[in-house]
């Protein structure tokens, strides 16, 4: 469903991504690994259009989306949950979900506030709470729920587990498994707490703005030199 070819992105004059290429099959989960500053977040931002790529191709469900503004990419069916969560602090939980609501997509059971409160029970009890007055874990759940209200076919998750307590982490992990069961594809950038790589169909390792290793989680576990070279601090 997603094919990325020779993607190059820049911050001003500095090139951050060098010929990044990978593919993602419908309904599958891929994880981006790599050290701090390897370019994982920039890949996600380039896909959603926040950092428009300077060159390269991004094909999503057979349509070229590179260079489109973020709202067009989101409408095409890609959801983005940023690392900083970026919930609308002055809006309540219910209003945050309303801001993310988009029309249903054929072939997908549409997400509603009720279904999301079932997925994240903690949110259901905070419906009228302004998002700015919630804990980091609650905000992370809200950020994911808000994105799901747009009924995306592909969700980009940037460091979903960062800075979360183990209990919250397990809830996020459960939601990732639930999404996968729904047939939603996921591309997850992960550096801190490791949970996503265990459920991933495909692991992509980045270094210095390029993909340097790809394969299954089991293959990465077996490849000690690669882990030593690309992932050890």
């Amino acid at each position: 469903m997603l094919e990325v070819e020779r993607l190059c992105s820049f911050y001003g004059r500095a090139q951050v991504l060098h010929d990044v290429g990978f593919g993602l099959a419908s309904g599958s989960v891929a994880v981006l690994l790599g050290r701090n500053g390897a370019g994982k977040s920039t890949v996600l931002k380039s896909l959603i259009g926040l950092v428009p790529p300077r060159s390269g191709r991004i094909r999503f469900e057979r349509a070229e989306i590179a260079g489109l503004p973020p709202h067009r990419i989101a409408r095409a069916g890609i959801g983005y949950v940023p690392e900083e969560r970026r919930v609308f602090a002055e809006l309540t939980v219910a209003e945050n979900l309303e801001a993310g609501r988009r029309p249903p997509r054929p072939g997908l059971a549409p997400w509603t506030a009720a279904r999301l409160f079932a997925l994240f029970p903690a949110l259901g009890e905070l419906r009228r709470r302004p998002a700015g007055r919630m804990s980091g874990g609650e905000q992370q759940m809200l950020a994911i729920a808000r994105t799901l209200m747009g009924n995306p076919r592909l969700v980009l998750l940037d460091e979903p587990g960062e800075g979360l307590a183990p209990l919250v982490l397990r809830q996020i992990e459960a939601s990732v498994r639930a999404l996968r069961a729904e047939g939603v594809s996921l591309l997850i950038a992960e550096q801190g707490p490791a949970f996503a790589r265990a459920v991933a169909d495909q692991v992509l390792v980045m270094e210095k703005g390029a993909i340097v290793w790809s394969g299954t989680h089991a293959a990465l576990e077996a490849d000690a030199p690669a882990r030593q070279r690309y992932l050890m601090p």
Binding site: L50, P69, H71, A74, Y80, R86, L91, E95, A99
Partner: peptide, 20 residues
Amino acid sequence: VLVRAATADRDMLACLGVDQ
């Protein structure tokens, strides 16, 4: 709701599919 969301973070709202 959309207007208040745009007030807080227009780029994030665009990522949710709203043509700001």
